[in-house]
Computed example of a mutant assay.
Amino acid sequence: MRVPRFLAWAQNLCGMQFSILVHGDIIIPGLAYCSRFDVWINSSRKIYFVSCCIAYLLGMIMTFAVMLLSEMGQPALLYLVPFTLITSAVVAGCRGEMRQFWAGTTYEVLDSSREPLLPEGRTDCSIEGEKC
């Protein structure tokens, strides 16, 4: 993806300089994991996903700031990974869910030919005393 350089706005479009963002800067599996973890723990405010998105935004701002100051290309993941990882770990630690967050979820993707594991969109394991 080509992004116009901030200092090149005064030039015409034909002579404009661009920076390049590669797919690793855009496709972030950590955001998907945080969203899935929010669903797994039934978080109504999506605290992990929202905090990770904010951290991702701050990491991108830091990447562009360092790129502008150093006048050199920067590996965005050098800033994105610490921002998102530390933020997610702090949120999990403050909420007392670090062990669950680190271990991961038992979420499975089902193909359309199979019935869902929990019918009717439920995320809990039992209904009125029944065991799964």
Rank of each mutant, 00 (worst) to 15 (best):
D25E: 10
S88E: 14
C14T: 09
D38L: 04
E130I: 09
A8H: 04
C34F: 00
C125N: 06
L80A: 09
P116N: 07
E128S: 12
F64E: 13
F101G: 01
I47T: 15
I28D: 04
S88F: 04
R122Q: 10
C52Q: 01
F37P: 02
A92E: 05
C34S: 05
V91L: 03
T123F: 07
S126I: 04
L57S: 13
A92V: 00
V39T: 11
E71W: 04
E108R: 15
C34V: 00
G59I: 01
G59Y: 03
S88V: 03
V22C: 12
I127Y: 04
Y79T: 02
S113I: 11
G93S: 15
C94Q: 13
W40H: 15
S19W: 05
Q17G: 01
S70I: 05
M72L: 13
I28F: 05
E115D: 15
M16E: 09
F83I: 01
Q11F: 06
Y107P: 00
W9H: 06
C14R: 11
E108D: 10
N42P: 00
F83R: 00
E130D: 08
A10N: 11
R45T: 15
N42Q: 14
E120C: 12
W9R: 05
S113Q: 14
F101C: 06
G24M: 06
Y79C: 05
E130V: 07
M60F: 11
S126K: 10
V81W: 01
T84N: 05
Y33R: 03
L68D: 06
M60T: 07
H23F: 05
C34L: 02
N42S: 14
C14P: 01
T105K: 10
S126M: 04
S43M: 01
C132H: 10
A8W: 03
Q17S: 07
A103Q: 15
I54C: 05
L21Q: 08
T123H: 10
G96A: 08
T87D: 02
L78S: 15
C53N: 04
F64A: 15
S35Y: 14
I27H: 07
L31H: 02
G121Q: 07
S44I: 02
I54G: 00
S126L: 07
D25R: 00
F18M: 06
E71D: 11
S35A: 11
A103L: 14
E128H: 13
S51V: 06
V66R: 01
Q11Y: 03
G73P: 05
L110R: 14
C14G: 12
F37D: 02
Q11M: 10
L78V: 07
S43H: 05
Q17H: 03
G129F: 03
V66I: 15
P29S: 11
A103G: 07
T84A: 07
P82D: 05
C53L: 11
T106K: 14
A89K: 05
L77N: 14
